[in-house]
Amino acid sequence: MNDVPVAVAAMPSAEGTAVARAAAVVGGPPAVRCTGLARRFGRRWAFSRVDLEVAAGARLLIMGANGSGKTTLLKVISTLIPPSLGAVQIFGHDAGADPAAARARLHLLSHSAGLYEDLSGADNLLVLSRLLGRPLVDPVALLARVGLAPRPEPVRTYSAGMRKRLQLAALLLKDPPLTLLDEPFAALDPAGCGAVEALISGLSGTVIVASHQVGRAARLCDHALLMHEGAARWQGPAARAVEAYTALHGIDNADGGG
């Protein structure tokens, strides 16, 4: 077996950002443990042979080009789709045996907004807060935190950047110990990118970011994992992420927008 086990420790980043890292709970289970993880669609493997352990409090960048399998990997880790092979544990809870326990501890910010198009931003947050069992007294304040004005119009009328901000507000509402972000900078203008960056670096707990905008995303993380054609090809400190990405892809496109 030539699998590539990857261990990410909760260590201070070499390229430390302004926010202090949450220290790993000594002796506690890792936030994410994937063993022999693989997922296929029909005859095609989206990714395979992924062994990954992310300590509680760590920040991991999963980088890779389109089609490298990083979105599917995030969906499998988040329990939205089951793995074809292997198992996922979230803080020690097996996602297959006890999905409710795993799901209660994580949130995925994905390509789709995860919102109701017919509701306003504040309505969406109120609905979600009730479902989470976490009463929200002031949706306007939460909207303000992500830079959104309270608008009565439904989300259907929002721009891509406004949707992304609303997704972030939903994430802040759930405030899970494990946050998974899939291309958080997609469809954002430079100001929006900056705002999202600030919000992500302010998140507490464990964070996993999947992005092909390596330069920008690496600044938010302490470790990095390079996916290529469904395989984990490199892992190391986030400081060398750009170098690894360009070494594999040849051209210097790692810094998209950063």
């Binding site: 077996m1 296929r40 493997w45 395979s48 042979r49 054609e229 395989a231 090809r233 490199w234």
Partner: peptide, 14 residues
């Protein structure tokens, strides 16, 4: 059926 896993890719070294 589960198809064969692709061959393990070599690790990249910087």
């Amino acid at each position: 059926a589960t198809p064969d896993l692709p061959a393990a890719a070599p690790a990249l070294r910087l």
